[in-house]
Design a protein around this nucleic acid. Structure first.
Lengths: 143, 143
DNA sequence: TAGATTGTGGGGAAAAGTGGGGGATAAATA
DNA sequence: TATTTATCCCCCACTTTTCCCCACAATCTA
C-alpha cells in the first residue's frame, strides 16, 4: 500500500527519483499515466491491467468511453527504472502535470501521484476548507 | 496493447513514421481507416477483421448501419510499411484528418490514432475540464 | 566519524525520426 | 506505339532524441 509524501526534483532531462520506500513495492517495472486533477498516476502493472480490462469492456461507439480511454491510455507509459531508481517522464505528461522542478510524490493507497509542488499546495489548501462537506457525503452508513 | 503519445511529422509525400515501439506490435502489414473524431484509426489486421465481422452482422436495411459501414470501410487501406517504418497515408485520409505537418500518434488500447497536432490539443483541452465529470459517470461500481 | 544508501547532474554512444535525391514502374498524351 | 509525365519506393545522410553509465552531493546509520 502506498502512503506518505515525498518532495523530489525533476531534472532537465525529465527524470525523477521514485522514493526508495515505494520502489520496494513497485519493483523495476510499472506504469505511469495521466491522472484526473492534472497530476500523474503511478500504478503497479497488475492494478493498471485491471483498469484497462474495465475500460476495454466499454464500446468505442460511446463518446465518453472514447474520451476517457484516449485520455487514460494515451498518457500511459511502461516504465523501467534506471539504475539510480529514476523514472523518465515523457514530455506530454510533464506538460500535462505542469512539472517544472519541485515535485511532490504522494501515496494514495493503490497508486502514487506525482504533482507539481505548487499545484499540490494549491489543491490541498483549496479543499482543506471543504473537506468537512466532502466527507459528509462519502458514506451513508457508519464505516 | 497500444499506449503512449508520440509527436511525428508527416512529410510532403504523405509519409509518417510509426513509432518503433508500435511497429513491434503491428508488424509490417496492418490497416488504417477513418476514425470518429476526425482522426485516423490504425488497426492490426486481426482487430480490423473482428470489427468488420461485427459490422457485417448489422442489417443493410438500417440507415445508420449503412452510413457507419460506408464511413468505416471506404476509408480503409491495407498498409505495408516502407523500409524506414513509415506509412504512406492516402490523400483522402490526410484531408479527412486535416493533417498538415505536426501530427500526434496515440495508443488507445486496441488501436492507434493519428491526429493533427492542433486538433488533438484542442480535443484534449476541451475535455480536460470535463474529464472529471466523464470519469464520474463511466462506472457505477468500484472498478 | 566512516560507511552505506539515496538523490542529482552531466557526458557520450546508440537508436529513432526526417528529409531529399534518384530510379523503376505505371499512366497519359500525341 | 513512342515519348513524356507523374507516382511510388528505396536508399542514403543528417539531425535529434533517448538511454546508459559514471561521478558527485547529501543524508542517514552504525
Amino acid at each position: 500500500m502506498f502512503i506518505g509524501e515525498f518532495h523530489h526534483n525533476i531534472d532537465d532531462k525529465g527524470r525523477i527519483a521514485i522514493p526508495s520506500k515505494y520502489r520496494e513495492i513497485l519493483g523495476n517495472n510499472f506504469v505511469i499515466t495521466r491522472g484526473i486533477e492534472h497530476c500523474i498516476y503511478v500504478y503497479p502493472n497488475d492494478t493498471f491491467n485491471h483498469i484497462v480490462t474495465k475500460l476495454e469492456s466499454l464500446p468505442f461507439t460511446k463518446k465518453d468511453a472514447r474520451a476517457f480511454t484516449r485520455f487514460f491510455m494515451s498518457g500511459a507509459t511502461a516504465i523501467e527504472l534506471d539504475k539510480q531508481g529514476r523514472v523518465n517522464v515523457p514530455s506530454p505528461l510533464i506538460n500535462y502535470a505542469n512539472l517544472s522542478k519541485k515535485c511532490v510524490i504522494v501515496g494514495t493507497g493503490d497508486r502514487l501521484e506525482i504533482w507539481d509542488e505548487e499545484a499540490f499546495n494549491e489543491f490541498m489548501s483549496s479543499c482543506n476548507d471543504e473537506m468537512s462537506d466532502i466527507a459528509e457525503n462519502l458514506f451513508e452508513e457508519k464505516i
